[in-house]
Structures are given as structure tokens and as C-alpha cells.
């Protein structure tokens, strides 16, 4: 540890100043926009935003989809992570690589694929009609279901990665020991696995939830104008009507939602122990 502060600051400050001036200051001005009026400070931007039924619907839809995606990702994530940890070292490395792989691929490409899969003439509908489950194709595109599936696929890897790294830290013998002592799998999960992996769950949960809140492409392509989410609503407000007050309100909501999700999950994690 060196003690020359001036030297240290000279090294650290360019990055901090860059971030501050070119990033935080513009964002802060944008966030303050909804609070400013000709006469002074105001909250009318917020009251007006939430008085519109469409905005309320979009707000709750975004929250709902975020929670659903994060919750489903946690369930699948635990199952997948558990299986990955149980593999031998070589297979584990390979499978882990395959899980990480989608993160390197453009989200445009990953979302685009779902148009082909979920369309009226896509594979899912061909299968449903082929199996006789329905006479006519089911409408999947431009529904919340489509957006849900798209978001889940986009962010599931983040949950699996977080949970795998958490599970790798569980001592090898703990689970077999609990089993021998007569615990069933549910008990093992609640009493052993969950407490030991909660940090991974918090990280994964926050990443998936905020990812789902702030994704643009998936709701834009798979939801369209009928399934607006906050991010697509913001884009529309700005692009169609130059409505920067609404944009500022939505920006604040998104940031507050991300932060509170993080805090809430942390709180839950500490309360359990």
C-alpha cells in the first residue's frame, strides 16, 4: 500500500472525472427535468404521469414481467446450477461455456430468433397444430407471453452463472450428510442450499430483474405497440412527441426500481440468516 495520495489521485481522477462529467452530470440533469417548472420545483410531472391509465398499466406490467422473469430464472437457475455443479470437472467447464455463450451474442440476434419460433407459421404453432392441441395457430407474438419468453432467454445465463459460483462454495459433503440424516430434497434446499447460496441468488436476481426492466429490443420486437414496457414507452414518448418530462419520470422510475430491487433482495438475504 503506497501512501502518496497526490500520485494516487492523479491516477484515479481521470476516470472519475470522465464518468462524472460525461455521464453522471447529463443523467442528473435529465432526472431533474421532471422536477423543474417555469416557476420553481414541482412534482406535477410525476402526478400527471401516474394519472394516465396507460402509464399505470405499463408501470405495473414492467414490474410484473420483471418479477416473473427473475422468479422463473431463479427456479430454472437452481435446477440447472445444481446439475452443473454435480458434473465432473471437464463436462462442467464445457457446459458452463455453453451457458455463457449466449451472452456473447447480440441481443438483436437472440430476440430476432423468437419471431421465427413464435409466429403463426413458426415451429411452436406447427407443433401445437400438428399434435392436435389446437385447430388454429395460437397468437403468441405481440403478447406478454412472448416478451416473457424472450426476456427469460436473454437473462437466464446471468442467474445460472451467479448460482453456479455460489454453489461451488458449498462444502462437498454437506448435502449428502443432510440426506443421510433424513432430510428430503425440499428440506435440503430450504435448510442447506438456499442459505449457502443466497448471495448468488441476490446477485443473479438483481441482474435478471434490472436486465428485464431495462431491456429495449425484446419488448420492442416481441411486444410491439400493444405490450409497451417502460423502456419502449420512454422511447415512444421521446420519439413521437418530444415529451422529455415523461422520459425523465420513466428514467427515475427505472433507476429507483433497480436500486430497490437490489436493496430488497439484500434485506431478504440477511433476514434469513
Amino acid at each position: 500500500m503506497f501512501l502518496n495520495n497526490r500520485e494516487g489521485l492523479a491516477l484515479a481522477l481521470p476516470a472519475a472525472i470522465f464518468s462524472l462529467l460525461l455521464f453522471l452530470v447529463p443523467v442528473a440533469i435529465l432526472l431533474s427535468e421532471a422536477f423543474r417548472s417555469d416557476t420553481g420545483w414541482t412534482l406535477s410531472g410525476y402526478t400527471e404521469f401516474f394519472s394516465k391509465p396507460l402509464n399505470q398499466v405499463v408501470f405495473f406490467r414492467t414490474l410484473k414481467l420483471g418479477v416473473l422473469v427473475a422468479g422463473t430464472a431463479a427456479v430454472i437457475g437452481y435446477a440447472a446450477a445444481f446439475c452443473i455443479v454435480n458434473l465432473g470437472p471437464t463436462a462442467r467447464g464445457r457446459i458452463f461455456g455453453l451457458v455463457v455463450l449466449p451472452l456473447m451474442i447480440s441481443p438483436v440476434a437472440r430476440t430476432y430468433a423468437w419471431i421465427v419460433i413464435l409466429g403463426r407459421t413458426g415451429i411452436v404453432n406447427d407443433t401445437i397444430v400438428g399434435l392436435g392441441l389446437s385447430d388454429t395457430p395460437i397468437r403468441l407474438l405481440f403478447t406478454e407471453t412472448a416478451v416473457f419468453i424472450g426476456l427469460l432467454q436473454l437473462f437466464l445465463p446471468l442467474m445460472i452463472i451467479s448460482l453456479v459460483s455460489a454453489m461451488e462454495n458449498i462444502p462437498r459433503d454437506v448435502i449428502p450428510a443432510a440426506r443421510v440424516l433424513g432430510a428430503n430434497w425440499i428440506q435440503v434446499f430450504i435448510r442447506v442450499i438456499l442459505p449457502l447460496t443466497k448471495e448468488g441468488l441476490v446477485i443473479g436476481g438483481t441482474l435478471v430483474f434490472t436486465g428485464a426492466l431495462t431491456a429495449y429490443i425484446t419488448p420492442a420486437i416481441l411486444g410491439g405497440s400493444k405490450v409497451l414496457m417502460l423502456e419502449t414507452l420512454l422511447y415512444q414518448r421521446v420519439n413521437v412527441s418530444n415529451d422529455f418530462v415523461s422520459a425523465s419520470v420513466i428514467a427515475m422510475i427505472l433507476i429507483v426500481m433497480s436500486f430497490s430491487a437490489n436493496l430488497l433482495l439484500k434485506r431478504i438475504a440477511t433476514a434469513r440468516s
Partner: peptide
């Protein structure tokens, strides 16, 4: 009838 309309195109 909104449920019967696939999407509103722009």
C-alpha cells in the same frame, strides 16, 4: 375489440 387486433402498426 383490442384483444382481437394483433398489433397496431406504425
Amino acid at each position: 375489440d383490442a384483444d382481437d387486433i394483433v398489433t397496431f402498426y406504425s
